[in-house]
Design a protein around this nucleic acid. Structure first.
Lengths: 154, 154
DNA sequence: TTATGAAACTTTAAGCTTGAAATAATTTCC
DNA sequence: GGAAATTATTTCAAGCTTAAAGTTTCATAA
């Protein structure tokens, strides 16, 4: 998935683009993962969940999280389990529908996330440093169509 | 990692770019993974390893694979183990340095990969269909700097 | 009402992934 | 030559990930 095109032909440019896209995201992801671990003793999936919840103080359902983060249901269960056991989020099952549970950041989780997010943003700025802000805008525009249909805002 | 920016500020455009990049690659990766499973009963990591080996008939060392694919050493061990047990690759330890083993595609592995790669390339073309070939070239150019330093070719 | 189906979530098994520790072989340098 | 450092790889524990199967709850409608 990270190797070069195995043939030349009509789809060549798109294939090359895909490989570059993947290499770029893997490289950046690996660096962010390592720093999250070293600096904050946390992981990327935990960060993702907390980032999603941070935007929505009223909380999210498990299935919302799963859709938003583009990962499976069962996956979210495990990550939230660990976040709960660390006191960073809560599951509350006290609404009308007893199948669902609302997941929210705790106060500690909110505080903790704010600090991590600040570092995270500056890391991304650093890692994408060789992309000018202008170029970043253009690139982001081209990638817009891949934005999940689920989320209206950003 | 996939949520929107949590603040506005100087790094905003780069952060947005990173989030779009990540969403795009996760979306495409998920689709490719699913098709590889359904159509060829294989996985993305196995495909990656085979793609790397396909380009190099003389084979690669475990550590070459690890560097090239941007994954850890231990990871490659497991994937290659499974490919060996499926008869798709071989490990040969018969060169001068007895610490190393040369990993190669078997004849069956080569044949198998060629078929998968053809489908893979057309899938990528389809999934990136809304990016014109011209746009693909420009985007790929912008992402060039993330190409691993290790590989000279592509 | 009560069966039938759908929805939200969890569990499970298998595989992927990492970082760190362990093993084994080679190289370096005294 | 032999100790010490380096290199290549594997093993391990913990966590992430998926798809599929299972559980509980809700909604629909006969």
């Amino acid at each position: 998935m990270v190797a070069g095109p195995t043939s030349i032909g009509p789809g060549k440019d798109r294939l090359r683009l895909w490989i570059r896209l993947l290499r770029a995201s893997r490289t950046i992801e690996a660096e962010l993962r390592e720093r999250l671990k070293k600096e904050f003793d946390t992981t990327l999936p935990r960060f993702d969940v907390m980032a999603a919840l941070y935007r929505v103080p009223e909380g999210m359902l498990m299935s919302d999280l799963s859709r938003f983060l583009l990962v499976s249901n069962g996956n979210v269960t495990g990550i939230v389990d660990r976040l709960v056991s660390e006191g960073l989020v809560t599951r509350s099952r006290r609404n009308g529908d007893r199948r669902t549970s609302m997941v929210r950041l705790t106060e500690e989780g909110t505080k903790s996330f704010a600090a991590i997010a600040a570092a995270h943003e500056s890391w991304v700025g650093e890692l994408l440093g060789n992309v000018s802000e202008d170029e970043a805008r253009r690139l982001a525009g081209m990638l817009k169509s891949f934005r999940s249909n689920w989320e209206g805002r950003e």
